[in-house]
Amino acid sequence: MRRAFVILVVVLFGLVFTSLVIAHNERHSLRPLAESYVKLIPQELGAPNVITGILLTYRAFDTLGEVAVLFMVAAGVGLVLGASNKRRKSSPRKVVETARLSSEIVQSGAQILAPLIAIFAAYIIMNGHRSAGGGFQGGAVIASGVLLLVLASTRYRVDLEFLSMTESAAGVLFVLTGIAGLIFAGGFLDNRMLPLGQFGAFFSAGAIPILSVLLGVKVGCELSVIIDRFRA
């Protein structure tokens, strides 16, 4: 009975997906909206990566909102898991002793990998305006490095105070950059307050790299705080 039901579900899913595949015909031209973005962004903003161009200028206000949502998540996790953290603070040594030590392979692996992950995160953040990447992705990579360090060493403590200070500073600077755009260029978070520079160069696309770095720092801090909260 159960088996027949499973087979029925699989067949139904198969039908749905085959109809999707059959109905799919590849568009050979862009939609009008996409085409105007693709033309406009390299011209107007000087960013080869159209997606980052959209996310950090036209839709930068949305991005700010997304970061705020992430901040709310971090705050919520802190609220829910904060009680167990208090217990941890009262007897930190005991926890260290009872926590299982990670193996030698993980420890030495973390020593080699953590710097590499940090470099990779910086690369992703700094090249957001030129190729695939950007602040959010790079911030997630930073947090994965922090997770590796937390796993590798029970003595490694995430400095929550430093992280929250850095995160707030990055957020304030992000908003200030937006206001600078309002004053020196066309509107809130307009990237043309700085010279656009040579198309595709490392320092180009106006304020997009700056916004990307601030975003990366902020997201990395927030996700690191969340990871640390989940530590028993």
Binding site: I105, V106, G109, I112, L113, L116, L151
Partner: peptide, 20 residues
């Protein structure tokens, strides 16, 4: 190189945790 370094380490950690 990155995959060769990370994949064994992560699966080792998982397997060790499972054994624990």
């Amino acid at each position: 190189c990155f995959v060769l370094m990370t994949n064994p380490v992560s699966s080792h950690a998982l397997a060790r945790a499972a054994h624990m």
